[in-house]
């Protein structure tokens, strides 16, 4: 490679561009007053953090609501997504491309319009509870990611092991449980991680589906972010990262356990 210094500089700029914004966020969450042009504030306080977990801060409520919706959405993804991905990866049939593109459509076409329609449906049905209807909207948004991830792993797996097992007399469920699923675990974890994170960060679908009443974390934070109270927003943002970080750690731990189990078994 000829242009090495240039390359390194560009990557360096990009890295700083990604990383640096986190620093003032942490600083802001521990101070109330931080005038320009000070690089560091002079007075530190934890007021914002105490406000967050007070009743008017609604932090716990937000986390709990987000968690419930994301959990329902993940469940829906698993029930709908795994069979679909499996069928798409293992069968050839007429119109497969059309089916696949319908399943992935929310990635390629802005989905706000269909969520407005769904909200009107839900209003007419009336018996759906806010958690469920919001989770349905989140499933719509996340299903493409999940199906694509699982589909990809199924393609890598191929059908050979299935055929061997079915010749040996295993039924479909046994094949899925003992052959496919263990091989699927890494992409299953990645897909679930994506679903949880994407569901967790939705603002507009949650707002539209619940009419602005189901306070998930993004809905709690948005008004603050618009009002410009830097200290409180920063604290909220860091709080927002906590579950994501936790999920990431769980993801890597599970992945590692899975890998270790596999190497032990192969010994």
């Amino acid at each position: 490679m000829v242009k090495k210094p240039l390359e390194i500089t560009l990557i360096g700029i990009l890295t700083l561009f990604i990383l640096l914004p986190f620093i003032p966020l942490v600083i802001w969450s521990f101070t109330k007053h931080w005038p320009w042009p000070l690089l560091m504030p002079e007075n530190w306080t934890i007021e914002s953090w105490t406000y967050l977990f007070s009743i008017s801060g609604r932090a716990f409520e937000g986390i709990l609501n987000s968690f419930i919706v994301a959990a329902i959405a993940l469940l829906g993804n698993i029930v709908l997504g795994i069979p679909a991905a499996r069928a798409l990866a293992q069968n050839e049939f007429i119109g497969k491309n059309i089916v696949f593109s319908i399943l992935l459509a929310p990635l390629f076409i802005p989905y706000t319009i269909s969520i407005i329609g769904m909200h009107d449906f839900a209003l007419r049905l009336d018996f759906l509870n806010d958690y469920v209807s919001t989770a349905i909207a989140h499933i719509l948004v996340t299903l493409p990611y999940f199906v694509a991830t699982i589909w990809f792993q199924y393609r890598l797996m191929g059908k050979k092991l299935n055929e061997a097992a079915s010749i040996l007399g295993a039924n479909e469920w046994k094949i899925f449980l003992w052959i496919e699923f263990p091989l699927l675990v890494p992409s299953f974890l990645l897909g679930s991680f994506l679903v949880l994170v994407v569901s967790y960060s939705q603002y507009l679908p949650t707002w539209i589906m619940s009419g602005g009443t189901l306070l998930t974390l993004p809905l709690v934070i948005f008004p603050y972010a618009n009002s410009g109270n830097s200290s409180i927003v920063s604290a909220y943002s860091l709080l927002f990262f906590a579950p994501i970080l936790l999920l990431l750690i769980i993801y890597f731990l599970l992945l590692r356990i899975n890998n270790r189990k596999n190497t032990n078994e192969s010994r």
Binding site: I102, S114, I115, I116, M118, L140, L143
Partner: peptide, 20 residues
């Protein structure tokens, strides 16, 4: 296996858009 997901998308994504 495709059916549930396909119906879901047809009903909510395409049906929802159409309804809107």
């Amino acid at each position: 296996g495709i059916l549930p997901a396909l119906l879901f998308m047809l009903f909510f994504f395409i049906g929802g858009s159409f309804h809107a």
